[in-house]
């Protein structure tokens, strides 16, 4: 029970310290909160982009265009060859007439198209691939382009790989910013706690004289740092939620012009808890380094 009382006393002491200088405490927590909110907002955006991309069909497709003079038998033979390929998940035939109708209905090229004396579009197949392995897709593409009356084979899977690469790059950037700002938080807390230790130097000295161990002296400062981190984490969460809502209102306005719904995906409850706990841990780390350093200096002065 003594152990519990010592810890409760230390928490009470730390809270009283924070409350005794409300303005200074609020400013400190706001600084730390803003620093943490930045990577949180970046992470939320990455998460949202990831969710939007997941809503898109990122499976690789291969388009097979027939020559303009291909006969219906050629088309049937190529279709058979495409379906026989084990990596082809689905084969969809788009006739040149269908393609023209689609082009006329979805673009403003109707007049231009009408002025043409013949349909410039070929019959085509869209093949959804089972694999995203570039070598295997390239092999299928090479085999299909050798089929008779096949004019061109286009594999438009590169963009999805690009997207994945950009996503990895984005995650790396977010991680780097997050690490830098986490370091900043630990340093700021270390500085704040150092000032606290210096202003309470007499109390520390007297406490040690009447029997306080190093752990006894450290305890309230460690809680002080951890609480500052905890409150900063909560503040960062609130700030990030506000920013996400603000950005989200503009983002949803963009939705009608895109197929996939654009929306901000905020942190999950587990991620929120991890953020606050991580911020508290950073505060604890900063406080620990500051207290350990200052106590060593006090000991050397005596």
């Amino acid at each position: 029970m003594t152990w519990l009382r010592l810890h409760l006393d230390a928490v009470g002491d730390a809270l009283r310290r924070l409350a005794s200088q409300p303005f200074a405490s609020l400013v400190s927590i706001a600084v730390l909160g803003v620093a943490l909110a930045l990577p949180v907002v970046a992470a939320v955006l990455m998460k949202s982009v990831g969710a939007t991309a997941a809503g898109l069909d990122t499976e690789p497709h291969v388009s097979v265009y027939m020559a303009l003079d291909a006969a219906p038998e050629d088309v049937r033979r190529v279709e058979g060859a495409l379906r026989a390929q084990p990596d082809a998940a689905a084969v969809k035939f788009v006739s040149r007439a269908q393609a023209l109708a689609e082009l006329q209905s979805t673009t403003h090229l109707a007049d231009v198209l009408a002025s043409l004396d013949r349909n410039p579009l070929p019959d085509a197949f869209t093949v959804r691939m089972r694999t995203s392995d570039a070598d295997r897709i390239a092999a299928a593409r090479a085999a299909w382009s050798r089929l008779p009356k096949v004019d061109q084979v286009a594999a438009d899977f590169e963009w999805s790989q690009h997207l994945a690469r950009w996503a990895r790059f984005g995650e790396r950037v977010v991680l780097a910013i997050g690490l830098l700002l986490a370091g900043a938080v630990a340093f700021i807390v270390a500085h704040l706690i150092r000032l606290q230790v210096l202003t309470r130097r007499d109390e520390i000295e007297v406490s040690q004289l009447v029997g306080a161990t190093a752990a006894d002296v450290r305890r309230p400062f460690l809680y002080h740092g951890a609480l500052e981190g905890l409150f900063a984490g909560a503040a960062a969460l609130g700030l990030a939620a506000l920013v996400a809502a603000w950005i989200g209102s503009e983002l949803s306005a963009l939705t009608p012009s895109y197929a996939a719904e654009l929306k901000v995906v905020f942190l999950s409850p587990a991620e929120r808890a991890a953020l606050v706990a991580g911020a508290a841990a950073l505060g604890l780390l900063g406080a620990w380094t500051a207290v350990a350093r200052e106590l060593r200096r006090f000991a050397a002065d005596r």
Partner: peptide, 10 residues
Amino acid sequence: ALPLRICGFP
């Protein structure tokens, strides 16, 4: 009270 607080007295 300081020495007692350090010892965690009720």
